[in-house]
C-alpha cells in the first residue's frame, strides 16, 4: 500500500499545484494507530499528509455537499463502496460530475478497528501496511502484526460488491483482489432475521429502536440524505404545533417512525456503504434494515445496488407496466 499512498500524494499535489482543484478530500492518519480521519488538503504541503490504510473507513463523497452550490473544483478519494455515493449525488443532481476529480482506490478491505486494537497498542505509530491478499501486515514502531482478512475485516467488506470504484477519473495504486469470500450471500444477515419468529423479530427491533438517541448521525453521514433541510427538522410555524409527521421526542414509537420514514426516503437510493451502522453510537444494526429493502427490490424488481450505474433511475421514481403486484 506504500506505493498507492505515494501515488495518491503525488497526484493530489499535482492537482493542487496546477490549481485544477481547490481541495482534495481524503484521509490522514488519526490520533491512534487504527484510525484514519477525513482530511481536506488545500495545498501541496498538505497533500503530503494524505494517507491510505485499511482504516480509511469514512465515505468521503458526502463532503462534496459542502460545496454543492458554489463552483469550487474539488477532488475526492473514494473506495469502491464510496464510489457509488458519487453516482448517487450526481443522479440527485447535487453537483456536476465534471466539477469533481474522483480519485479511485482499489481496496482490499477495511480492518475492524476494535479487533486490531485488541492486539496492537493504540499509541504505536503506523509505519507501513502491506496488503498480502489474504492478510494485512501492519508495521509499527512497536513491531509487526499480521491480520487474517477473514478474521479481522469489517463484515461489510467480507460482502464487498465493488472493491474497484465504479466511477473514477484516476485510478490510484495497483489492482487488488476483492476481499469478499467466494459464494458469499450478501443478504445472509437479512435472511437470517427473516426466518426468525415474528415475535422475536419484533422484540429485536423494539430493543434496538428503544436505544436510538435520535442523534441523526446516520442521516448526517449518508450520501443519499442530501436534502437542504431534513423533513424531520423543518421548522415551519404551525407544523410544530401539532401538524408535523413526527415529534422530536425520543420515544420508541417515534423512533420507529423516524427510522422507517428515513428508510423510505433512501429506499432504492441507499448505496449500501454501511456508514450509518458504523457511526451509530448505540449500535443499531441499520444496515440490516436498509438491506432488507435492497434485497426485496433486487428480488422483485431486479434492482442493482443503487449507485452502480450513473444512468439508473431510483427505483421508487420509476414505473413499469410489468412490475409485479400483490394487490388488486
Amino acid at each position: 500500500m506504500k506505493q498507492a499512498v505515494e501515488e495518491l500524494r503525488r497526484q493530489a499535489a499535482g492537482l493542487l499545484k496546477e490549481e485544477r482543484v481547490k481541495c482534495v478530500i481524503g484521509w490522514t492518519q488519526g490520533t491512534d494507530v487504527a484510525r484514519a480521519v477525513p482530511f481536506f488538503a488545500t495545498s501541496v504541503r498538505q497533500a503530503a499528509r494524505l494517507t491510505w490504510t485499511p482504516f480509511c473507513v469514512n465515505n468521503l463523497s458526502k463532503y462534496l455537499l459542502n460545496h454543492r452550490y458554489d463552483n469550487t473544483p474539488l477532488a475526492v478519494v473514494v473506495k469502491g463502496c464510496d464510489s457509488r455515493g458519487i453516482n448517487r449525488l450526481v443522479q440527485d443532481r447535487q453537483f456536476v460530475r465534471e466539477r469533481v476529480v474522483v480519485l479511485g482506490l482499489p481496496c482490499g478491505g477495511m480492518l475492524d478497528r476494535e479487533k486490531v486494537l485488541r492486539v496492537v497498542d493504540p499509541g504505536a505509530a503506523l509505519q507501513e501496511v502491506e496488503d498480502r491478499g489474504s492478510e494485512y501486515m501492519l508495521r509499527t514502531d512497536k513491531g509487526e502484526y499480521g491480520f487474517e482478512k477473514r478474521e479481522a475485516l469489517l463484515s461489510k467488506c467480507l460482502e464487498c460488491e465493488h472493491n474497484i470504484p465504479v466511477v473514477s477519473d484516476l485510478m490510484i495504486g495497483p489492482q487488488v483482489p476483492s476481499p469478499a469470500g467466494s459464494g458469499i450471500d450478501r443478504f445472509a444477515g437479512v435472511r437470517e432475521l427473516e426466518t426468525r419468529d415474528p415475535a422475536v423479530r419484533s422484540t429485536f427491533w423494539d430493543r434496538h429502536f428503544a436505544r436510538c438517541l435520535r442523534c441523526y448521525a446516520c442521516r448526517n453521514v449518508c450520501p443519499a440524505c442530501n436534502c437542504k433541510e431534513c423533513s424531520f427538522e423543518q421548522a415551519v410555524p404551525g407544523w410544530q404545533q401539532g401538524a408535523c409527521w413526527l415529534s422530536k421526542r425520543n420515544h420508541p414509537g417515534q423512533n420507529y417512525l423516524f427510522h422507517l420514514i428515513r428508510m423510505f426516503h433512501v429506499a432504492g437510493r441507499c448505496i449500501d456503504c454501511g456508514e450509518c451502522a458504523r457511526v451509530c453510537p448505540v449500535n443499531i444494526p441499520l444496515r440490516e434494515l436498509y438491506r432488507k429493502v435492497m434485497k426485496d427490490a433486487e428480488e422483485l424488481f431486479a434492482m442493482k445496488t443503487p449507485g452502480t450505474d450513473p444512468e439508473e433511475v431510483p427505483l421508487l421514481s420509476t414505473y413499469r407496466t410489468d412490475d409485479p403486484e400483490e394487490f388488486s
Binding site: Y69, V313, P314
Partner: peptide
C-alpha cells in the same frame, strides 16, 4: 425553493409535464 435541493425526481412523476428546472439566485 429554500427546501428544494434540485434533484428533479418530481419531473418524471408529473403526468402533465408541469415541472421544470428553473434558475434562482439565493
Amino acid at each position: 425553493e429554500a427546501l428544494c435541493t434540485g434533484c428533479f425526481l418530481c419531473v418524471p412523476v408529473c403526468s402533465y409535464r408541469a415541472l421544470e428546472p428553473k434558475k434562482i439566485t439565493e
